[in-house]
Amino acid sequence: MGTATAAVEDPVDGLRQVRHLRMRRHSPGPTAGRPLALHTVAEGDRLDLLAQRYLGDPLAYWLIADANAALDPDDLIDSRTVGTVLMIPAPGGW
Results as ranks from 00 to 15, higher is better:
residue 72 D to I: 12
residue 45 D to L: 06
residue 43 E to Q: 12
residue 8 V to N: 11
residue 15 L to P: 02
residue 63 L to R: 12
residue 40 T to I: 06
residue 4 A to F: 14
residue 32 A to K: 02
residue 82 V to R: 12
residue 53 R to T: 10
residue 23 M to R: 15
residue 23 M to Y: 13
residue 3 T to S: 15
residue 4 A to Q: 09
residue 85 V to M: 08
residue 78 D to K: 12
residue 1 M to C: 07
residue 2 G to S: 14
residue 42 A to I: 07
residue 36 L to G: 00
residue 68 N to D: 07
residue 13 D to L: 15
residue 78 D to Y: 06
residue 92 G to Y: 01
residue 63 L to C: 08
residue 8 V to E: 15
residue 7 A to D: 07
residue 61 Y to W: 15
residue 40 T to G: 04
residue 88 I to P: 01
residue 86 L to T: 01
residue 46 R to W: 00
residue 48 D to S: 08
residue 16 R to L: 15
residue 9 E to R: 08
residue 21 L to Y: 12
residue 16 R to Q: 15
residue 42 A to L: 13
residue 63 L to E: 06
residue 27 S to V: 10
residue 78 D to A: 12
residue 10 D to P: 04
residue 92 G to L: 05
residue 87 M to E: 04
residue 48 D to I: 02
residue 55 L to E: 00
residue 6 A to K: 13
residue 73 P to R: 08
residue 11 P to R: 11
residue 12 V to Q: 13
residue 16 R to T: 13
residue 59 L to F: 10
residue 20 H to N: 08
residue 42 A to M: 10
residue 37 A to R: 12
residue 54 Y to W: 06
residue 69 A to S: 13
residue 88 I to H: 01
residue 7 A to N: 07
residue 10 D to M: 09
residue 85 V to D: 09
residue 61 Y to A: 15
residue 22 R to V: 10
residue 11 P to S: 08
residue 69 A to M: 02
residue 71 L to A: 13
residue 70 A to Y: 01
residue 2 G to F: 11
residue 48 D to W: 01
residue 1 M to N: 11
residue 41 V to Q: 07
residue 22 R to Q: 11
residue 93 G to P: 00
residue 88 I to Q: 02
residue 64 I to N: 00
residue 72 D to N: 15
residue 34 R to Q: 06
residue 76 L to F: 05
residue 94 W to I: 00
residue 6 A to W: 11
residue 22 R to P: 00
residue 78 D to Q: 13
residue 59 L to K: 10
residue 34 R to T: 03
